[in-house]
């Protein structure tokens, strides 16, 4: 595959777009000076390599997505206390743009399932996930949300991935705030390489 450089004019202004294809080094060599200038002038958002990995438009969209992850408030158990500590001043989740906890799933991007989920709670969890608009992600926080943990019994879902598609599993019982922040950063890394529309192909059991 070759890098296609398309030049168009929008509102009387010349725009240059590069699409991905070749190996990164070759692509960088093949870019002409004008292309670099356009990118430098219009897209001061991410590294050039990142842009070329997924395409300029997707890179911009992904940048916007991953730097303002609005979590849905979904504290189920003791992990929620650590989640609150993550939001508080010492660990300050706002440094990663995820401080806006929404009470309504309609305004949320990421659901942090913090705690053990009972089978009675499972339909509500699924419903809140369904109510979140696309694109949406799920972090299973702690051992219980990931695999049931110590609650290996009839009442508890053995991992919320039976109910909703989980993007990041955060280990710990409960995980420390640093651990949850690491999970959020891993999710950001994941979003960085996402293609537009990719979330729609996620398997929902």
């Amino acid at each position: 595959m070759k890098v296609n450089i398309i030049r168009t004019t929008i509102d009387g202004r010349e725009i240059t777009i590069a699409s991905p294809g070749k190996a990164r080094g070759d692509v960088l060599e093949e870019l002409d000076e004008e292309m670099r200038q356009v990118i430098g002038r219009n897209v001061l958002l991410a590294k050039l390599e990142d842009l070329l990995n997924v395409g300029i438009v997707q890179a911009i969209v992904n940048w916007a997505k991953r730097n303002s992850l609005w979590p849905a408030t979904f504290g189920l158990a003791c992990c929620a206390i650590e989640m609150m500590a993550t939001v508080a001043s010492r660990n300050d989740i706002a440094r990663f743009g995820a401080e806006v906890f929404r009470g309504s799933p309609r305004q949320a991007d990421v659901m942090i399932v913090s705690g053990r989920c009972s089978w009675k709670m499972a339909p509500i969890l699924k419903r809140i996930y369904d109510q979140m608009p696309n694109p949406k992600w799920v972090i299973a926080m702690g051992t219980c949300a990931s695999c049931g943990g110590v609650f290996q019994n009839y009442a508890i879902v053995q991992g919320v991935d039976q109910i909703v598609p989980v993007d990041v599993y955060v280990a710990g019982c409960p995980p420390r705030p640093e651990n949850l922040l690491h999970g959020i950063m891993m999710l950001q890394e994941k979003i960085k390489n996402e293609r537009i529309g990719e979330h729609k192909s996620k398997e929902v059991p």
């Binding site: 089978w119 019994n153 009839y154 009442a155 053995q158």
Partner: peptide, 13 residues
């Protein structure tokens, strides 16, 4: 009725 002694503890739906 799960608190009966003969209820299978590890049962899942």
């Amino acid at each position: 009725h799960p608190l009966r002694k003969d209820f299978p503890l590890f049962w899942q739906p």
